[in-house]
């Protein structure tokens, strides 16, 4: 029994704690254990219908629901921001169904559910980050048959993936894949890191926090355990590189974070701001200033 919960284990509105029933959570935890034991391997699970459409993070929510406890502090980000509709809704959902404390501070959180970004502030041991994944299969473009792509994984037959990189260089002169950049986990399984920008790929490598990936529609869970080697695919003469900007964040002046471009008028005006709102706020609270040029 979880501390601080009524004996009925239900919370408001007649729901079970954290919305999902206990058998479902147990099933998901079993899949998580298997995923952690085989880093990068996609474990099938019986994904449930959630009170939101597919594509809004049903896989991530199911993972969060089966992991969360009353002592957790939850942070939810969408494209790096804590204040978008999706992030706010999911945070409220768990505040109501799981009675957890929520935060926007990366350092204060114990559980982070994310879509499309990894926080700029390095995660520490003991934290868990849950990614929402639309297409878990990195070989999907290469091999549409699920039976065949599983066989390619089993035989570690990943040469075809390099055809895609070759094609990128032949067409654009460089590896143009900018997000969902394929990685090899622990030297064994090819994995889609979910649509995070490749800027975040180096953060996957040997991260002290536990990384879990949930795809609700595709019914797959996979994981990168703490301190696991994660390499981005590349050629010897075209090594892996992350995006760079000439600009700095107009709000906090950061030059080393992932920047969003914001169009400000119809005369070509634009600024760049940190996509990680917590990172930006923390820097400004510390006195950093990007020379805010907002009209």
């Amino acid at each position: 029994m979880i501390d601080g919960l009524p004996a009925s284990r239900t919370v408001g509105h007649g729901y079970t704690y954290a919305y999902l029933d206990e058998q479902t959570k147990r099933m998901i935890r079993r899949a998580v254990l298997k995923a952690v034991a085989v880093p990068g391997y996609q474990v099938p699970f019986a994904s449930r219908e959630m009170p939101m459409p597919y594509g809004w993070g049903t896989g991530g929510i199911q993972l969060t629901a089966s992991l969360i406890g009353p002592s957790d502090v939850l942070k939810v980000i969408d494209q790096g921001a804590d204040d978008t509709t999706n992030a706010v809704s999911i945070r409220q959902f768990f505040a109501r169904t799981a009675h957890v404390q929520t935060t926007t501070r990366t350092a204060e959180s114990t559980l982070i559910q994310t879509r499309h970004r990894i926080p700029e502030q390095p995660l520490r041991a003991g934290q868990i980050i849950v990614y929402q994944v639309p297409i878990p299969e990195p070989l999907r473009w290469l091999e549409p048959r699920e039976t065949e792509s599983r066989r390619l994984h089993a035989l570690q037959d990943y040469g075809g993936m390099y055809v895609k990189l070759y094609e990128d260089i032949a067409r654009y002169g460089r590896i143009a894949t900018a997000y969902d950049y394929p990685v090899l986990v622990n030297g064994r399984y090819l994995m889609s890191p979910s649509p995070i920008p490749k800027f975040d790929n180096p953060k996957l490598d040997r991260m002290p926090a536990l990384q879990l990936f949930g795809a609700g529609r595709e019914k797959r869970i996979y994981a990168v355990p703490p301190h696991t080697r994660v390499e981005s695919l590349a050629f010897d003469d075209h090594p892996f590189q992350v995006q760079k900007w000439d600009q700095t964040c107009v709000l906090c002046g950061a030059g080393d974070s992932y920047l969003d471009e914001v169009i400000t008028d119809d005369a070509g005006g634009r600024w760049f701001v940190c996509s990680d709102t917590d990172h930006c706020t923390r820097r400004r609270d510390g006195g950093a200033d990007g020379g805010d040029r907002r009209p």
């Binding site: 037959d157 040469g159 075809g160 390099y162 055809v163 990189l165 070759y166 260089i169 050629f235 010897d236 003469d237 075209h238």
Partner: peptide, 12 residues
């Protein structure tokens, strides 16, 4: 190039 890449060639 596919068969070369499948054999392990990693130099574009």
């Amino acid at each position: 190039g596919e068969r070369l890449l499948a054999e392990g060639a990693r130099h574009y």
